[in-house]
């Protein structure tokens, strides 16, 4: 099962390697990881996507919590949440495909962020599955390079 885990940690040197070292050392897998400062610049927020059965996810959250520099660990999947990922795609765009590329980008509400005579670089934001979908659709047109941010996620506010 896929799980999205959000970790608040102290923004200090070496903290990220404590997290990644924990995953590699214990054989847990990381599908994606993204990290940046929070409002409080002494604290970072790390979102990671991992896979495992219930027992493994329980170990992952406990082990993360055990790290001295970790403040809070939330398995976001425990509640309603929004997740987003951004991808930059450089896709071939020559005379016969330029229009088709633009159409696809439009359908996915993406943006063209760089243009050259032979290619476009496009930006698309959405759920991981949406990002995967545009990649799959553009592939036959000739993707030259992609860069994904990995998932970030946030629990939805209570509706009450």
């Amino acid at each position: 099962m896929k799980h999205t885990i959000s970790v608040l940690l102290q923004n200090k040197p070496g903290v990220l390697s404590r997290v990644t070292g924990l995953f590699s050392g214990r054989g847990f897998n990381i599908e994606s990881l993204s990290v940046a400062e929070t409002l409080d610049s002494s604290i970072s927020c790390l979102t990671l996507v991992t896979r495992g059965d219930e027992a493994i996810i329980e170990q992952i959250t406990k082990q993360l919590h055990k790290l001295i520099d970790v403040i809070k660990v939330t398995d976001i999947g425990d509640s309603e949440y929004v997740e987003r990922e951004m991808v930059l795609i450089r896709v071939k765009a020559e005379a016969q495909t330029r229009a088709e590329v633009l159409r696809v980008v439009d359908i996915f509400r993406g943006k063209v962020v760089d243009v050259s005579p032979k290619s476009y670089a496009v930006e698309v934001t959405g759920s991981t599955s949406k990002v995967q979908a545009i990649i799959d659709i553009l592939k036959p047109l000739g993707i030259q390079e992609i860069v994904r941010t990995g998932t970030i996620a946030m629990a939805r506010a209570s509706k009450k």
């Binding site: 040197p13 070496g14 390697s17 404590r18 070292g21 050392g25 001295i68």
Partner: peptide, 14 residues
């Protein structure tokens, strides 16, 4: 040494 001992200490500091 902080990198080397990260997995075999409870915590470490530079």
């Amino acid at each position: 040494i902080v990198g080397i001992t990260r997995p075999c200490t409870k915590h470490n500091y530079l």
